[in-house]
């Protein structure tokens, strides 16, 4: 019995003594943020760093002020650079394009940043493919009655993104976000000390094209859910198709603190397709539908 116990003990020590998985310390990363919107002018680039998780966070304090920022239009097969657009810092960490450039749909753009760091230059780069544009071809209604049988049903022309179906995000933006205009569900959620502007924009999250009615010519029809409407009266509905960078960022950020099949407390990094840093350099195409939502007397 004693020999048996000794043998078991030795086996245990051998098996269990070797496994280590220790916690690392905080590491600082560069953070980029910029968006390319098809047929719109180049937008600003934000550049900052992370801070330790439980310290006070202020963008200005963590802004990078001495970077050289470029956005490069790549050629059709992304093997070389067609054009370079330089940026200059206008506010701490915020870089604006020196010249205007209308973002071309279906083309690839590269964000390229160099930052002096002592005797070396840190480099950050990211590439985004701009989705093809699309437009509304049918179904716009100027006025709708909230939760009536006549629902906003819109048909968009074909858009495309290489290698996969389109992924949409629908955003409803209220033009008149006052408390009297809140729809019943959002009025129920609203608490007195909350900023109404936070309710003025609602977003659907990522929706695959496969959810919608698709036609042979590539157009799609969506029925816009009433759930997305937070305020009566004037609203703009923005339909957006997103690139892989935005898709990866949103889908991973949405579950970073829980949800899906992940256990509570099992936190992973957001998927960022940035070399030399983290953040988001994303591209999208969008179209906007204005509409007016009237109150439904049967719900009041």
């Amino acid at each position: 019995m004693r020999n048996l116990s000794l043998t078991i003990g030795l086996v245990l020590i051998t098996l269990f003594g070797c496994e280590t998985y220790s916690q690392s310390d905080y590491e600082e990363f560069y953070v980029v943020e910029s968006y390319m919107v098809a047929n719109r002018n180049l937008q600003q680039v934000r550049l900052s760093t992370t801070v330790p998780a439980f310290e006070f966070y202020d963008f200005d304090d963590s802004a990078i002020r001495n970077a050289i920022v470029q956005v490069r239009l790549l050629n059709q097969n992304s093997s070389s650079i067609d054009s370079v657009f330089n940026f200059t810092m206008t506010d701490p960490g915020i870089y604006q394009p020196v010249s205007t450039h209308r973002v071309l749909p279906t083309r690839s753009y590269q964000l390229f940043i160099t930052i002096p760091n002592g005797n070396i230059l840190d480099e950050i780069s990211a590439t985004a493919i701009v989705p093809d544009t699309f437009s509304v071809i049918d179904g716009i209604l100027d006025t709708l009655v909230y939760q009536s049988s006549e629902q906003l049903s819109v048909t968009f022309s074909e858009s495309s993104y290489p290698g996969r179906q389109n992924v949409f995000v629908f955003t409803t933006i209220s033009e008149n976000p006052i408390i009297d205009n809140l729809t019943p569900i959002y009025l129920d959620f609203y608490e007195d000390d909350e900023d109404l502007l936070e309710f003025s924009v609602t977003s659907s999250g990522l929706l695959n094209e496969g959810n919608f009615t698709q036609f042979p010519d590539g157009s799609v029809t969506i029925n816009y859910p009433w759930l997305a409407v937070a305020f009566y009266e004037e609203n703009r509905i923005v339909a957006t198709t997103v690139d892989d960078n935005i898709y990866d960022y949103i889908r991973s950020n949405a579950v970073q603190l829980g949800g899906s099949t992940l256990s509570p407390g099992e936190i992973q990094n957001v998927l960022t397709n940035v070399k030399g840093g983290i953040g988001l350099f994303g591209a999208m195409a969008s179209d906007t539908i204005p509409t007016f939502i009237k109150r439904n007397p049967f719900l009041e």
């Binding site: 310390d25 990363f29 943020e33 937008q43 934000r46 330790p52 963008f59 992973q268």
Partner: peptide, 14 residues
């Protein structure tokens, strides 16, 4: 998972 750093995005179009 111990969280180590934090950052934020400010220009999210959505």
């Amino acid at each position: 998972t111990q969280v180590l750093g934090r950052y934020a995005l400010f220009d999210d179009p959505f």
